[in-house]
Design a protein around this nucleic acid. Structure first.
Lengths: 164, 164
DNA sequence: CCTTGACTTAGAGTATTCTCTAAGGTCTAT
DNA sequence: ATAGACCTTAGAGAATACTCTAAGTCAAGG
């Protein structure tokens, strides 16, 4: 059985990555594994799909094309770059976890805001929250307010200006 | 007690948002609540910090400045836009949840890759995975391989080209 | 044979989110 | 009054990740 090779169009149809983008990735050095036909046509092998899959995963998880290129270049160099590649992935893993934590925090804020909008509509009063006693405030509101305080007092050594 | 007002520099020092960026946000319509002094100096009130906090949260959670502007414009219009603002936040909440789910999936892939690199170094063989029997493969590897298959066969009606 | 369509290259254009520069006005302290 | 720090505006430049255009090559189908 001869090796099956795919054209840029085949790959585009299968992966949903446009031929334009594939050529762009190639130009940027993200596809060092790529072979070319005698007249320069890009040829993708069965194995290359795994690399393309890895590229889309790294991208979706927030890695820049620049870093992805660095990784793919190491990959192309072979086994002796395994330690570097491992390090890159360990670091990237930490970044994903940090991003997930940040998103979770932001979700809390947005959840509070959703509650606020529902409540404000119910009462037909956007300022209702200012009139709540400490006992009436739900915990997420207290949390939100304390976060606003933190945000506002990052550096609190200077006196605010009086006036107008 | 007269109202306390803050200059762009004060706000920058407290929030870490550069004066440049604050002016840029103003120019783009993200700060419709802003007042100006007789000679045009931007003046921020105590309350405006909450709006700035909301802006940074929306940004960190992936909302575009364009959408944030739309939201702030609605906010400036007052109580009658509460339903629209509520809708925007409900939708944004869904987007955050979708993004979190995607990140979690990507984390699984990256976790698998971390395992792969550790194992490949241990065995000093980047191709060890090809030699594993079905029983020897950890579940995350089987999952990874099935995802690569899905990725590659998005549209599997066309025959691959033979050759070279 | 000629059209169609996929491929090639180099390079320009787009959207987003800043980031900086230039040119100039105003305020405060010495 | 003059320096220095702050403010204003308009607009250029940068990084990222495409996205498209132009100009041209090549091979297969009618």
């Amino acid at each position: 059985m001869s090796e099956m090779l795919y054209t840029i169009k085949d790959v585009s149809d299968r992966t949903g990555i446009s031929p334009h983008t594939l050529r762009f990735y190639d130009k940027e050095g993200l596809l060092p594994f790529l072979r070319k036909s005698p007249h320069g046509t890009r040829l993708f092998s069965e194995e290359d799909f795994e690399s393309l899959f890895t590229i889309t995963c790294l991208k979706k998880s927030g890695m820049s094309l620049h870093k992805i290129r660095d990784f793919m270049q190491l990959y192309a160099k072979g086994v002796e770059t395994l330690p570097e590649r491992q390090y890159m992935f360990e670091e990237h893993r930490k970044e994903i976890l940090a991003r997930m934590k940040e998103l979770e925090e932001m979700l809390n804020i947005v959840n509070y805001k959703c509650w606020y909008f529902a409540e404000a509509r119910l009462r037909n009063d956007p300022d209702f929250y200012k009139k709540l006693s400490a006992e009436e405030m739900p915990p997420q509101m207290i949390e939100f307010m304390s976060k606003v305080q933190n945000f506002k007092q990052a550096i609190d050594s200077g006196e605010p200006h009086d006036s107008v």
